[in-house]
Design a protein around this nucleic acid. Sequence first.
DNA 1: AAACTTTGTTTATTCACTAGACAAACTATT
DNA 2: AATAGTTTGTCTAGTGAATAAACAAAGTTT
Lengths: 394, 394
Amino acid sequence: MAQTWNQHVVKKENKTLVLETIKEHAPISRADVAQRTGLNKGTVSSLVSELINEQLIDELGPGESSGGRRPVMLLFNQLVGYAIGIDLGVNYLLGILTDLNGNIITEKKINYENISYEEIRERLWDMIDFLKSKAPDCPYGIIGIGIGVPGIVSNEGEILLAPNLNWKRIQLKEEVEKKYNLPVTIENEANAGAYGEKKFGAGKDFQDIVYVSVSYGIGVGLILNGNLYKGSHGFSGEFGHMTIELKGLDCRCGNNGCWELYASEQAILRRAKELKIQPNKGEELTLDTLVQLADQAEDPNAIALFEEIGEYLGLGITNIVNSFNPDQIIIGNRITAAKKWLQPTLIDRIYSYALKFHQTDLQINFSILTTHSTALGVAAFAIENFLEVDLIKK
Amino acid sequence: MAQTWNQHVVKKENKTLVLETIKEHAPISRADVAQRTGLNKGTVSSLVSELINEQLIDELGPGESSGGRRPVMLLFNQLVGYAIGIDLGVNYLLGILTDLNGNIITEKKINYENISYEEIRERLWDMIDFLKSKAPDCPYGIIGIGIGVPGIVSNEGEILLAPNLNWKRIQLKEEVEKKYNLPVTIENEANAGAYGEKKFGAGKDFQDIVYVSVSYGIGVGLILNGNLYKGSHGFSGEFGHMTIELKGLDCRCGNNGCWELYASEQAILRRAKELKIQPNKGEELTLDTLVQLADQAEDPNAIALFEEIGEYLGLGITNIVNSFNPDQIIIGNRITAAKKWLQPTLIDRIYSYALKFHQTDLQINFSILTTHSTALGVAAFAIENFLEVDLIKK
DNA sequence: AAACTTTGTTTATTCACTAGACAAACTATT
DNA sequence: AATAGTTTGTCTAGTGAATAAACAAAGTTT
């Protein structure tokens, strides 16, 4: 059955609009909200009083007069509830507890290697229990849990495939919901990262954003017309396996010449070996040790390698820019550690080769949330969901 | 100022919903509309009576009883107005006159070569005048004009760049609006084609569609979540310049290894010359003569060439499938003439190399509107616009 | 001190939708 | 043939959310 429109929908939408306006422009008066939204003053008054009853907003007190009665300033009450966001990586678990504005209250990170689903799940329970215990006393408590995973997640929240974790058809969402009796969102890490940047990071003011998450592989999250685009089954964003060289390197996806073989962390490590770049004595060859080498020792080979990778990143991003005409590209995840050396060649490549019209007003940024985009993104899902549900319920 | 929600919006949306339901399921009774939409019977009655007053729908007469009073069947009145759709190609002008359901009443095609903007404009006036003269007498007359062009069109309808026509910054929309005093839509041909297929063609039942328009170059139109995605400035869809070979052929876009150099009509012609494939005596080397060669003479070289091109087309489409997870791919425009030989290698390539999850429920179709997608798409814009405006006005 | 401004509440009104009654027109059963 | 039940479509009364406008409160400006 199609969506029908009635007064309930109207009210819910207007209430959301009022709340969003207050969140964005706080502190703000009722009169100003009415002006900005175009709603009648009376309507705003009535919706505001409901929101105050629900404790979602507070009256801060009188503000500055602008030549008449002093306004009563309103504030989004970000402390009525807390969200848990978890970035479940290939070899780490990053958990954060945030207020309703995405401010991080507590965070914790643990590392592991090559452990089974069951073992990771144990650590996940510990993480959630820990974060829960850190939540201050408040009216709504923990309002939801979001989890970002490096894999393909169906629209129903099932993890269909996470190759680097060796997971297949994992029903994590149901398990978490059952154990904690809270709303749970599971999402691909790149999609979550894109959403995090849109909500709290570099993408706040943009509508069409391409978030390129570069770590071991490359994942892409798309914000189109201001909303996360997920594709017909929720699998969009596998740009990492875009062919950029016809007879290129073999990829485990079955194809060859895939972009992520040339422009990701795995590409960096492969090339470092080929070029015989050695990290400082006793250290393993990793992205971090290479960054150290470039940063502290100013190793010209390491720097040249990063510049090369920047060029390849730029090449793939150019393809994306031509295809989508986004207004912003955000490069995020672990690769941001090498921003200093990647950025010049990357930007140069895009400006040289992207179609000129597509460069109009194009922003190219690195993530400002760096390694926290995903965790913040899934926390944002939980928050959105809570506010949505809360507004409907009365 | 943000969108506010009030009863006017509710009414407009519900009226649209009722009209869409009638269009889709005609002939249909008021009771059935109420059931399908979830609206109250009374509400439907009142909206239907308005639509009848506006002559947009008609009562057909009594239908079959299902064990009670016989229903009055309603029908969308597709003949109250007519739309003009024009596909302005590099060397041709295809004009159609359609009713409000996209049925073609009259069509006309003229060819030309290497002529100036002013000369094309003259032929355009002749075309529009001709189509106007063919419109039957009806309440609303010609309700709008749509024009599809092979170039980059801004959100405001200005043709910023049409390289194959040698056009730059052409304000065609204003000129047509001024001369005919009708609403005019100008759109990129691939975007229009995608919309045409979504509305009237192979894409009717799908939400996330990638329409690949292959003629001299390659353009792509994206239907995401059921709507045309245009990008931040309206320039999305330049997949033709996606790099698929790192050190590939030089492209006039400044880049090299662009997809359209390997998988379009220009690729076919280039390769035919390289392979010394000769068309029948006295004929020029064109896509059509090559198709004749393959079809009538069953020339193995020509067939092999088409198969090769199918492979390259499949390669680029695989990239797109992995990136977007669409539920349908539609290949359209002139290349459809070679469908017979392209299709097997193209489909094989996609099924072999696209990520397996992305193949779930994936449809790969050739256009059923073939060379008419663009003209029908722009006509559809005109129709949509008319119905929208008409519904608002009261 | 008087006049003007700005803020926020209150009241009366409007408008679209819903529920439910009802009439009309038909089918099924006795 | 009479009666009962069903389906369709209209009509009426009522609800709820928004708006316009009046008004009170609390300022500033002259």
